[in-house]
Computed example of a mutant assay.
Amino acid sequence: MQLPERRYGKFSIEQDVLIQAPDIVRKVMGECVILRAEFRFQMNQTDYEAWSPGFDPVPDGQEPPSYDVVYSDETDTVTWSKQEE
């Protein structure tokens, strides 16, 4: 399966955020299509691989970059910040 423009990326959400701020997590999930999710017990977080129009396009054969989720409480918006390699 290939989604438009290969806008793939990775991000993580800590378990505490999932429990304490489910409304924010729902907002984040509304901005992407989850392709894979894995809970990492030792890190107490869930790692996601997803497609989002907010991610940069990924060339064929390259690994998708990691992003930080940026939520603005003031504007109730989600943006993505690409992590430095």
Rank of each mutant, 00 (worst) to 15 (best):
72 S>R: 05
52 S>G: 06
79 T>Q: 12
3 L>G: 08
34 I>E: 08
54 G>T: 03
34 I>H: 02
9 G>Q: 08
22 P>K: 13
44 N>V: 09
58 V>D: 07
47 D>M: 06
45 Q>I: 02
64 P>V: 05
26 R>G: 00
56 D>P: 00
45 Q>D: 14
63 E>S: 10
3 L>S: 10
46 T>Y: 01
9 G>E: 04
4 P>A: 12
31 E>Y: 01
5 E>C: 09
58 V>F: 02
21 A>Q: 14
74 E>D: 14
80 W>L: 03
54 G>S: 06
71 Y>P: 00
1 M>D: 11
80 W>C: 00
41 F>G: 10
70 V>P: 00
26 R>H: 05
32 C>H: 01
53 P>G: 01
26 R>M: 02
31 E>D: 14
77 T>A: 02
37 A>G: 05
69 V>N: 01
60 D>S: 10
82 K>N: 03
81 S>R: 13
71 Y>D: 00
68 D>G: 00
70 V>Y: 02
25 V>D: 04
17 V>T: 12
55 F>A: 01
2 Q>L: 10
36 R>W: 08
52 S>A: 10
12 S>E: 13
24 I>T: 12
65 P>S: 13
71 Y>R: 01
64 P>L: 06
3 L>H: 11
2 Q>V: 07
76 D>C: 06
79 T>Y: 03
26 R>C: 08
83 Q>L: 15
28 V>S: 07
69 V>F: 02
32 C>S: 05
68 D>T: 06
41 F>C: 12
59 P>V: 10
45 Q>S: 14
3 L>Q: 09
26 R>T: 05
67 Y>S: 01
28 V>P: 04
48 Y>N: 04
85 E>S: 14
28 V>C: 10
20 Q>R: 11
4 P>K: 12
77 T>N: 05
22 P>D: 15
49 E>M: 14
43 M>V: 13
44 N>E: 14
19 I>V: 15
81 S>V: 07
44 N>Q: 15
63 E>T: 14
82 K>L: 03
76 D>Y: 04
57 P>W: 06
12 S>I: 12
1 M>L: 12
53 P>F: 04
67 Y>N: 03
1 M>K: 07
21 A>C: 13
43 M>L: 15
10 K>H: 11
13 I>P: 03
34 I>F: 04
18 L>A: 04
77 T>C: 01
39 F>L: 07
47 D>R: 07
33 V>F: 13
1 M>F: 13
77 T>Y: 02
71 Y>M: 01
4 P>L: 10
41 F>I: 12
14 E>Q: 12
78 V>G: 02
61 G>T: 09
31 E>N: 15
64 P>K: 05
73 D>M: 08
26 R>V: 00
39 F>S: 08
53 P>L: 08
63 E>W: 05
13 I>Q: 09
32 C>I: 03
76 D>V: 09
6 R>V: 04
3 L>N: 07
30 G>N: 15
28 V>M: 11
51 W>S: 02
6 R>D: 13
